[in-house]
Structures are given as C-alpha cells and as structure tokens.
Design a protein around this nucleic acid. Structure first.
Length: 442
DNA sequence: TCTGGGGTCCTAGGACCC
DNA sequence: TCTGGGGTCCTAGGACCC
C-alpha cells in the first residue's frame, strides 16, 4: 500500500480529490445482487462486447472490449448481464451526494468518477487532507458497497495520476514535494489528456515518463505543443490551472446518435432507415432538454472504418425529425456509394439553443410550427408510456425490430444510385401533414 | 485496444471587411 | 487591377475523454 502522507501534514497549495469507481458497471451489478460477489461478472450483453468486468473476470483475461463469444470460451461460467444505465446513474448520484457532504465544490466528471475541492477544510473536519480523503473513500465503500480508487493532490491532473496509481481500492496522496517519485513511475501516455498522438510525438522527443515531460522547459512546451497540453504540463508541475466545473451540466452543445449494425449493409434503403432512427433519437433527446438545432451533420461509416458524411444547415431551428430528414435527403444521395458496405451510421444535431428562445421568422407559419410541436409532444408522451420505438417514423421502420430481416429478405439487392434516388420519390407524401406514423403500441 | 456510443474543446484556414 | 496589413467570424477536422 502507498502510505505517503498518512497522518501527516504535507503541504497542498490546493487539495483536490479524485475518486474513481473500480469496474464501476460490474461493481454496481454486484452491489445490487450480492450473490454475484466473488464471481466473474461482465456487463455489455446488449452489444456483444464487454463494457465492464469484475476483477474476478479480469483475472481470467476478460477485459473491456472483448467479444462475449470469447468470454464464454475463456470462462463458460462467466455471468453476462445487459448494461443497466439507470442503476449506474443511481449509484453515481449517491457517489456525488457523499462527496458533497464534505465539499460543495464537486465536479461530476463521469458516471463513475468525480473531483472534489477540499482546500481549506482541515479546520472544519479537524483532520489532515489525507485523512479527509480516506474518510470519503471509506464512506463510499460502506454506503455503496463498491470500492473506489482515490487520488489526492494539488491539481486535477495530479489527483488523476493518484487515483490511477493503484487500482482497485487504492489510495494515493501526492503531495507537491513528493510528486516526482510518482511521475517517474507513470508512463506519459497514461496521463489524462495525453492521447496516442501526443504520446507518439513526446516519445519521439525522448519523453517516456510523466517526469521526463515535467523536466522540459516552458519555452519548449510553448513552441511545440498546444494549449491543452501546455495546461497538463503546468498541472503536472504542481501549478493548478484547471478549475472544477461545479455547475450541474444541463445544456448540450451537440447531441449525437450513432449505431453500429451487423452485418454491414450496402442497401440504401436500410442505411437511410438507420439514419432516420438516429435522427429520431437525437431529436427526442433534444426535445426532452427543450433544445432545438440550427444544423446537423451525419455520416456513414464503411466496413473499412472510413467516414463519409455532410454538414447541413437548416433553414430554421428545428427538433422535428421529419424536417431534419427532409434536409438530409439530397446529401444522403451524395454520401451514399453504391456497392460500399457500411457498418455504422450517425447523426449529430449542432447549434443547439433553448427552444423557447427561438425567434420565428416572417415566413414561418406559426400555426404549422405549433402543430408540429404538438405532434411531437404526443410522441414523447407515448414513448414515455410505452417505451422506445413504441412509435416512430415510417422511414425508420427498416432499422427497428425485425426490420433488418425484412430489409434483406425483400431482396432490394444492390441498389444503384438511380434506384436509391427512386426510393425517395414516394416519400413526397411524408411532407404532407399530419405525418404518417407507424405505431406498435402495446 | 482491431475499434460501442456519447460528448467537449482547440486550431488552422478561408471568407469577408476596413 | 494590383498591392498591404489587420481584424472578426465561421467551419472543418483533429484529438481526447468516459
């Protein structure tokens, strides 16, 4: 165990804690159902690869991202469950709540992790920062039945180094004067914010560890690296430049829906239907947050992982899927290549604003706009009551439920560009209001 | 890491203006 | 029509995170 600072009073210009749930999704499953304890448990059943694995599973070589078919080969007794995001969100909220008992300055960084600012709280709790951090860790374990790895230091990046330093159930305090030992033991690519690209660049300049990086001087850093990386360099040197984002996040700059399908498809009708489903999902999310988009982008991802897509500006703000789809049609025909197999599609709504703020221009018929809004209010209510896909656009049909089978079974076959074009002629009727919905309620 | 889904931020470069 | 210099705004795309 790393006992640096236990019971002592090291100097922290700021005292920031980072807590990180160990194998969080899998740990939540075990916490809810204690009969799973001690067993190899894996989440991700709904998508065919491992999202999270308990340490019992990891000990067998079952790690994130591997196929569930391989999991069964490695360990037939492994317990595979579908991800339950509502459960994980509940545990997440409880984690934040525990942290907030100690400090109001909490950053909800991810579903399984958060930062807290403990600066100035020694007097309040009559404890050293290390002891406060240990107490938080103990509370989390006692109340959630999940272990957390905890880092304490004077910057966010160093606190992250700490929480990663020992897993699972680790506690690592990195006081300013002792930090070099920890940085020497941390590969540069493991630092938060240093991805594969920057790692390769730094390694080419002889930098292997985080300590090597901190030993570079400021001029060199400013000359070769961009602002985010320069900030990481400062934080690794003990200068706190990243603030905690403590406001609860409730607005989005963009909303994205993507989906991979298997097997890959080259059918225009099927692909368009996937995009239609993406659009509906993104619009539904925008509506639940009271947001409306001024533009959007979409892509098709080929079997070879190449992206082709387009950015589209809307003539007016919208969160109604049929309007987005209408704008997408001509671009789809340019993006889609006959004969290419695609494995995924995606849609991103951009230029998001609060729906109330939106000004109607002179040419928008307010009656019609209000009518559309009412239709989708109804859609949202039905979805709330009967679940996702209870009601959807006709254009999404082939992407939903048994649609995949129907689409291939019908033998549309290789759709040429002209035939793909013909596909949309019949959609003229969709412009007629009210919209043709296909319901599968109940 | 042979690759799922959902995000954010930064930067270079072009368009446009004075 | 060419030549400077400088500012702002927007967009595309890269890089990274969980």
């Amino acid at each position: 165990m790393n006992e640096v600072g236990w019971g002592r009073h090291y100097y922290y210009p700021r005292a920031l804690i980072h807590v990180d749930g160990d194998s969080f999704f899998a740990a939540c499953e075990v916490a809810r159902n204690p009969s799973l304890r001690g067993k190899p448990v894996v989440t991700g059943a709904e998508r065919g690869i491992v999202s999270a694995a308990t340490y019992e599973a990891k000990a067998l070589g079952i790690n994130r991202g591997i196929r569930l078919a391989d999991v069964k080969k490695i360990c037939p007794e492994a317990i595979i469950v579908a991800s339950d995001y509502e459960l994980y969100t509940l545990y997440s909220l409880r984690m934040y709540e525990i942290m907030r008992r100690y400090t109001p300055a909490v950053e909800e960084y991810g579903i399984d992790e958060c930062f807290g600012d403990l600066t100035g709280l020694r007097r309040t709790f009559h404890m050293s920062y290390e002891d406060i951090a240990r107490k938080i860790k103990a509370d989390l374990y006692r109340e959630l039945d999940i272990t957390f790895s905890v880092g304490l230091s004077c910057t966010k990046v160093l606190a992250k180094v700490g929480s990663k330093y020992q897993k699972p159930d680790g506690f690592t305090a990195i006081p300013l004067i002792g930090k070099d030992t920890f940085l020497a033991n941390t590969e540069i690519g493991k630092i938060w914010g240093i991805g594969p690209n920057t790692t390769a660049f730094l390694q080419n300049h002889g930098i292997r560890t985080a300590l090597d990086f901190t030993n570079k001087n400021e001029d060199w850093v400013k000359k070769y690296l961009n602002k985010p990386i320069e900030e990481i360099w400062r934080e690794l040197n003990g200068e706190s430049v990243m603030d905690l984002v403590t406001e609860a996040k409730h607005t989005y700059y963009s909303i994205q829906k993507t989906r991979t399908f298997s097997p890959p498809s080259k059918e225009a009708g099927f692909l368009y239907s996937q995009l239609s489903k993406n659009v509906e999902g993104a619009c539904a999310k925008a509506r639940t947050h009271g947001l409306t988009a001024t533009g959007f982008s979409f892509f098709l991802k080929s079997q070879e992982f190449r992206y082709r897509g387009a950015d589209v500006k809307l003539s007016g703000p919208s969160n109604a899927p049929h309007e987005i789809l209408h704008a997408m049609e001509p671009h789809f025909l340019k993006v889609f290549r006959a004969g290419t197999f695609y494995r995924a599609s995606g849609v991103t709504l951009t230029g998001l604003h609060e729906a109330k703020e939106v000004q109607l221009d002179l040419f928008t018929d307010p009656e019609k706009t209000a009518g559309i809004a009412r239709v989708f209010e109804r859609v949202d209510v039905l979805t709330e009551r009967f679940g996702r896909h209870a009601i959807y656009l006709a254009s999404s049909m082939k992407a939903i439920g048994a649609g995949r089978v129907a689409a291939s079974g019908r033998g549309i076959g290789s759709v040429s560009r002209t035939r793909a074009g013909a596909l949309f002629k019949g959609r003229e009727r969709q412009k007629i209001f009210p919209l043709p919905f296909l319901g599968e309620v109940g």
